[in-house]
Write a protein that binds this DNA or RNA. Structure first.
Lengths: 339, 339
DNA sequence: GTCTGGCACTCGTCAGTTCTGAGTGCCAAT
DNA sequence: ATTGGCACTCAGAACTGACGAGTGCCAGAC
């Protein structure tokens, strides 16, 4: 083994020890707990080199070393072996998700099982509207000159919106609107629905034209132009598991994680099915510079319907969390495909 | 003023000082900050009596006094004056809630404004199904032998449920089912819908009877027997505002507050419009013995549709929070009545 | 009977000190 | 290239004494 290889072994050992103990790790402890085949003195030389290159750091002079963000990054990219879930864990995921009912229920169970497996805070995005298809669009008369549109997608998502009309409509009008909308939109992806929508006012009965125009405008705005992305979180309490992880108080962390927008940026920017890891300062949000995020897209087939992941201290079990996140995403994909 | 009255004044002063400073308050500081017209020595006698009666306690021998749960209780019941919101605060609530769209949006804004006003964690319950009326019930054919029922209530709540059928249904069947269900249920309260529902299988065309029976069973179970109550939370980060408030770590607190069931028991048991205050150990849940809950029912008119409230450390501004909760509940009631 | 000033006492907090030990870097020897 | 030895650093624990906030009690005043 070259000395370069051993240096990486040392880094791996440091990360593993630090993750499990939360104590800065010194050369002596290292040579005892891992059989690296060299003396502490040699390890010290390697550590000095690693520190020089920015992979580890000393909290203070007479302390052991702690991995830096850069060190974790190298560990994740090159040093950590995939860590397959145990059979009981797989069974737990499966049985937990199997009893689910509607979409909300599926996602609720998803965050729960993910938080339990990883002992971190879990986040899951609702299937994005743009890549979903219309299963049904319901038009309901609610009060004078107000219509409620209820969209049901093929992933089971239900979105509603109330429109104010300038004229009153009869029950027959509503039925006709519903019929037209559904016959033109059903089965269509929302991303492709734009053109079909804009046609509708022209082919509807003249009397209904203004109403249809309003409906189309509402739909285009709510579903095509700025489709509402949503997320669900769970296991927030896990962030408080160790007080030591967020010494400056976790107030800013919790504050950041309450914002849907922030969460979406964290887990919603997945375009493939490879697990994405963001470590400490790599995170876009200021308050999350001491946290890491492990996320992946889930989907039925090849298109990613949304993202899910976990958020925790940079000192986390990356290999385990990556496996858990990947496995849960696969099961969720199956669930949504089968419904 | 009788000496009994003064003793209560002393208790009030202790609570007020402790709430604002978080320091145990001593006799000298008390006589300086409040003009009670007596010397510290006299106050000491009163404090000894108050401690004897269990209203205050000493963290340790040479420290000032701190209110006990019992002390806060007396304060809330008899000593705290209503604290009307400022005009800007009222305007803030109103303008914040006015722009709301659908129900989710209303509730989202509600928890937000409540959390901001009180600087506590806020909780709001979705309008309970039992006291809502059916505005529309949609039947959607989703995949082979599966129907999705979508219930829309007069409060704007949308609930869905997927049913497995033993036989296939045609589009015409679905239309007929929808027509029958709506004509019998529309405008009816869910609490009263039970009887009407049970009639339906008997008056529907014989061919549709098994399907209707399944639907009715599903509806009865989901909406009448165990209607799903939901809550929304916000401002959780406020619990971490002062580390001192939850010295033993707030892990158990956060864990408790993640459970929908626990939250429902906290704020869902309001049957009138009087503000309910639960202090420390009065809370049903073990993990919340260091927290207080201020809650009230909201509703359109006289029936309470649900509850809302705030959760925080026992050391909280009870008067202010009670006013804020009451005010927000009134506005929410108006919002929901007008939609 | 109630209030007050005085006084002795308790005890947590703070600052200063010392001690210990984990951990390091460097160097000469292998 | 590796190793054992050694001097050095420094955070944290443990101890100390001074300080002072706060108390309870009591005798005297109103």
């Amino acid at each position: 083994m070259s000395s370069e290889d051993r240096k990486l072994d040392v880094l791996r050992a440091i990360v593993e020890d630090f993750v499990s103990t939360n104590d800065p790790v010194g050369s002596k402890a290292l040579s005892e707990r891992h059989n690296l085949g060299v003396s502490p003195a040699t390890i010290r030389n390697d550590m000095a080199a690693l520190e020089e290159e920015g992979y580890i750091a000393q909290p203070h002079t007479s302390a052991g070393r702690v991995p830096t963000d850069k060190g974790y990054r190298l560990f994740v990219d090159r040093l950590s072996a995939a860590k397959p879930l145990s059979a009981p864990e797989r069974r737990a995921i499966q049985s937990f998700l199997e009893g689910a009912g509607d979409l909300d229920d599926v996602l609720r169970r998803t965050v729960r099982v993910l938080a339990q497996l990883t002992r971190q805070m879990a986040v899951v995005q609702y299937p994005t509207l743009t890549r979903s298809a219309v299963r049904h669009l319901e038009v309901v008369d609610v009060g004078p000159r107000r219509l409620m549109l209820v969209l049901i997608t093929d992933t089971g998502r239900v979105e509603q919106r109330v429109l104010e009309l300038s004229v009153a409509v009869t029950d027959d009008d509503v039925t006709e609107l519903r019929r037209m909308l559904n016959s033109h939109l059903q089965g269509r992806r929302l991303a492709d629905a734009h053109i079909a929508l804009l046609d509708l006012p022209h082919i509807v009965a003249p009397a209904l034209r203004p109403v249809m125009t309003t409906i189309v405008a509402g739909l285009v705005e709510a579903l095509v132009e700025k489709p509402e992305e949503r997320v669900m979180t769970g296991g927030t309490a896990n962030l408080t598991r160790s007080v030591l992880d967020f010494p400056n108080s976790l107030h800013p962390v919790l504050e950041a994680l309450e914002e849907q927008v922030v969460l979406l940026r964290l887990i919603g920017e997945v375009d493939s099915s490879t697990v994405l890891v963001r470590i400490g300062g790599e995170n876009p949000h200021e308050g999350l510079h001491r946290t890491s995020v492990v996320s992946v897209g889930y989907g039925a087939g090849d298109t990613a319907l949304g993202g899910l992941g976990v958020v925790g201290p940079t000192r986390m079990d990356y290999a385990g969390n990556m496996s858990a996140v990947r496995a849960v995403a696969r099961y969720v994909g199956q669930m949504l495909a089968g419904s």
